[in-house]
Design a protein around this nucleic acid. Structure first.
Length: 596
RNA sequence: GCCGACGUAGCUCAGUGGUAGAGCAGCUGUUUCGUAAACAGCAGGCCGCGGGUUCGAAUCCCACCGUCGGCUCCA
């Protein structure tokens, strides 16, 4: 791979409040952002500039412009960028005084604000490339000729400093790569990702739907999607049973006082629906399952010997999401969490948390998730308003998570300010096919709700003690998990999850009876099988089974009928030729058993 | 919610001021076929919804609803 980026050292750069390391690729993209800004300035001399950082697969720049850009402007901007790149203009750095900077950028309000936010002793630098000078810490490539092929990707609105009360700017997203080949490959990957989008596959394979009539963000699982969900649920519940969980069922609504006691009403109200009045009492569509499980715990008096008590439920919750945030199955208003609440003695906390992590690992391994990282989400000590409980409680809870991870040698990153209002979290961050990162699983240590609900157990000496609590959801919501799975497999689900595991394809009508016989054999082993007895050519039926990503196609004609066999075709296109029915059964049941 | 783009048949899309189209899917018939699309016919649309401009609107304008890409937030 040839690289146009200056070789060598990674540069330490102060950016947006924390120290970040700029790789050579980031540096090149950051320089490309300046080139883009320069091109935009040529077209709009009155443009106001905000920030233009590199991001994971490219870069963006935020502008305030006299009119809205459209994708039709892209070719013009790209043309001007290419001209600047070809000119090979040097990037010239200059360090200037604060006064001089304020003077230079007097007509650039966002730059002025940025300058004023810089610490007193900070060096202020500017970079000039061709006609364009920008306030910037750098670093940059030596000259614009070192910038690789660029492509503008999309437009978006973004608030100044990410604050919805500040002006809205136009954000121009673009990408740049060292070589044309790498750019082409990235664009190909984007295209490929679009093909795998769970919304597209969900439609093509009739897995689920969202209807305007029912309401945005409210998912209807169609029979095929529901089959997959049922398999997943059974799998999860069995794994939890093995791990010592007891399953409960609780209703989707509850009295408002439950949520006032838990603190949700005070801290989580923005995500909750308005109360429902029933006989002069107010009820809440639950946004979380914990209060119900806590009440279930309080059903009786618990001995220290009984703990931990692990109450699990595939619990459906409802959260208000702004209409613009809804997407397919991954961002919805009603969803089902594979939830559980563990009530344990404080001395059991660490071990219980280790078990939680182990269960996550087991489940992820079984469904083939590899690309995930642990993130410990901590309280922001500077913003105690957002959280309940005192410093000591938080320290204990945060340490319990760290200790648990350390004890099994798991690596993790820490994120300050990402905790839930009642406790720190362990989030498991997974990347989807588009490279976006989501919290697929969140798990919390909670010492607050046991207090709020006055939970107790009876200790060895007969005294009443307060248990600790763990909230855990290894796969988060079934909806989001399903979206991940769909994209990961591009709709070709493993056999154990496939809604239709085998299609029997009779070649001519006279083979239908035998086809039914074959299917009956498979059904006897609980294999989900269908017979395609339509008056269509075999080729047509194969094509449709392929498009539906059915793992096994069993073609039966005269020869197979004579031999008591079926010609096995896999969705990979592989032809296994005629196999005895007993062998077909063996193959499919083996796949199912091994979760392949 | 905010900015931008887009809403035409179940699906994918054409149609830019003058009588709504194609392919696939569906239905009916014919065909009985050896590993990714047989043939013919039929049916299917308040052109997202509501206003407006015009002799005339899928097409132009306004408002609303929805979808998509982002922002913010998040399982």
């Amino acid at each position: 791979m040839s690289t146009k980026v200056s070789p060598g050292v990674e540069n330490q750069v102060y950016h947006g409040g924390d120290m970040k390391v700029f790789s050579p690729l980031d540096t090149m993209r950051h320089s490309a952002a300046h080139i883009m800004a320069s091109a935009v300035l040529e077209m709009f001399p009155d443009a106001k500039f905000a920030y233009g950082p590199p991001i994971e697969n490219g870069f963006y720049y935020d502008f305030e412009l006299p009119r809205s850009l459209t994708p039709e402007d892209f070719p013009e901007i790209e043309k001007r960028m290419r001209r600047l790149i070809e000119s090979g203009e040097p990037f010239v750095r200059e360090e200037i005084s604060r006064e001089r900077a304020l003077e230079m950028f007097a007509d650039q309000p966002y730059k002025v604000e940025t300058i004023n936010l810089l610490p007193e002793n900070e060096t202020i630098s500017i970079y000039t490339v061709g006609p364009f000078t920008d306030l910037c810490r750098g670093p940059h490539v030596e000259n614009s000729g070192r910038i690789g092929p660029v492509k503008l990707l999309s437009l978006a609105a973004a608030y100044w400093r990410g604050d919805e009360n500040r002006p809205q700017l136009q954000r121009l997203y673009a990408t740049a790569w060292p070589t044309q080949g790498e750019l082409d490959e990235y664009l190909w990957r984007l295209e490929e990702a679009r093909k795998r989008d769970h919304r597209k596959i969900g439609k093509d394979l009739d897995l689920f739907m969202v209807s305007e009539q029912v309401g945005g963000g409210l998912v209807l699982w169609l029979p095929k999607g529901a089959t997959i969900r049922r398999e997943l649920e059974n799998f999860i519940v069995r794994a939890e049973q093995r791990a010592g969980y007891k399953h409960v069922y609780t209703p989707h609504i509850g009295k408002i006082d439950l949520y006032k006691t838990s603190g949700h009403w005070q801290h989580y109200r923005d995500s909750m629906y308005s109360p429902i009045e029933v006989e002069e009492e107010e009820y809440i569509l639950r946004p979380m399952n914990c209060p119900h499980h806590i009440v279930a715990y309080k059903h009786g008096l618990h001995s220290y010997r009984e703990l931990p008590i692990r109450l699990a439920e595939l619990g459906t919750v409802y959260r208000y999401e702004k209409s613009g945030e809804l997407t397919g199955m991954s961002r919805v208003r009603g969803f089902t969490i594979n939830d559980a609440h563990i009530f344990c003695r404080p001395d059991q906390l660490r071990e219980e948390f280790v078990r939680v992590v182990e269960l996550i690992q087991e489940l992820y391994h079984a469904v083939g998730f590899r690309d995930y990282v642990y993130r410990v989400s901590l309280r922001d000590p500077a913003d105690t308003e957002k959280y309940v409980g005192g410093d000591e409680m938080w320290a204990v809870a945060e340490d319990a998570i760290r200790d648990a991870l350390d004890s099994i040698g798991a690596e993790y990153v820490e994120a300050v300010g990402e905790a839930a209002f009642y406790g720190p979290k362990l989030d498991v961050m997974v990347r989807d096919v588009l490279g976006r990162e989501f919290a697929a699983s969140t798990n919390q240590v909670d010492l607050y709700l046991p207090e709020a609900f006055e939970l107790e157990y009876v200790d060895a000496d007969g005294s009443r003690k307060r248990p600790a609590m763990i909230h855990r959801a290894p796969i988060g919501s079934l909806e989001r998990f399903f979206a991940f799975l769909t994209e990961q497999h591009a709709g070709a689900f493993p056999v154990w999850l496939s809604p239709v595991q085998a299609v029997v394809i009779p070649i001519a009508d006279r083979h239908t009876e035998y086809a039914e016989e074959v299917a009956a054999n498979l059904r006897g082993e609980d294999i989900r099988v269908e017979v395609d007895a339509r008056s269509e050519r075999m080729q047509h039926k194969i094509r449709e089974a392929q498009l539906q990503k059915v793992p096994y196609m069993l073609v039966v004609g005269d020869r197979e009928r004579e031999a008591g066999a079926a010609a096995v075709r896999l969705r990979s296109g592989e032809d296994l030729k005629a196999q005895p029915i007993s062998e077909v059964l063996r193959m499919i049941t083996k796949d199912i058993k091994e979760r392949r």
